[in-house]
């Protein structure tokens, strides 16, 4: 299986949402590629020890977003469509991640210069590792 999911109970995020978020993340980071197959609802439910309806709900949501498709009799696959969020929603999510990142860095006593440098470093690593495979079809 190309991606392992982890769920935790007692979280502020409902389990079905933890699953959808992890699939989206795996797709954006390239850990899950177009055409990759996901475990069946039943298999994932038994693996994560959660109610199958919870997995079905997560898959259903991802299908409505066009990230997953169900091929009759064969299973659930990642579809070619890449765009998951609207631009506005994307910004909203980025904003909160930046907020957390900068806040944490300040607590750890990093200077803005160090942070900027680290950010640039990471960014160039990503560019290299992902190469030119980011073609939107």
């Amino acid at each position: 299986m190309p991606a392992a999911f982890h769920i935790s109970t007692g979280s502020n995020t409902p389990i079905y949402q933890q699953i959808t978020e992890q699939v989206r993340l795996a797709v954006t980071t390239g850990r899950l590629q177009v055409g990759d197959q996901l475990p069946s609802v039943r298999a994932l439910a038994e693996e994560l020890v959660v109610n199958p309806n919870t997995v079905a709900r997560a898959y259903g949501e991802l299908m409505r977003e066009g990230l997953l498709e169900s091929r009759a009799g064969r299973g659930v696959f990642i579809t070619p469509k890449r765009k998951i969020y609207s631009r506005a929603e994307g910004w909203r999510r980025l904003e909160s991640l930046l907020h957390a990142l900068i806040g944490e860095a300040m607590i750890l006593d990093f200077t803005p210069e160090e942070l900027r440098e680290a950010f640039e470093d990471k960014l160039s690593q990503w560019k290299h590792s992902k190469g030119g495979d980011h073609d939107h079809k």
């Binding site: 109970t9 007692g10 389990i15 020890v49 959660v50 109610n51 309806n53």
Partner: peptide, 10 residues
């Protein structure tokens, strides 16, 4: 046990 409930209950 709400953790169990969260896992299994509809």
């Amino acid at each position: 046990n709400l953790s169990d409930v969260e896992r299994v209950a509809d």
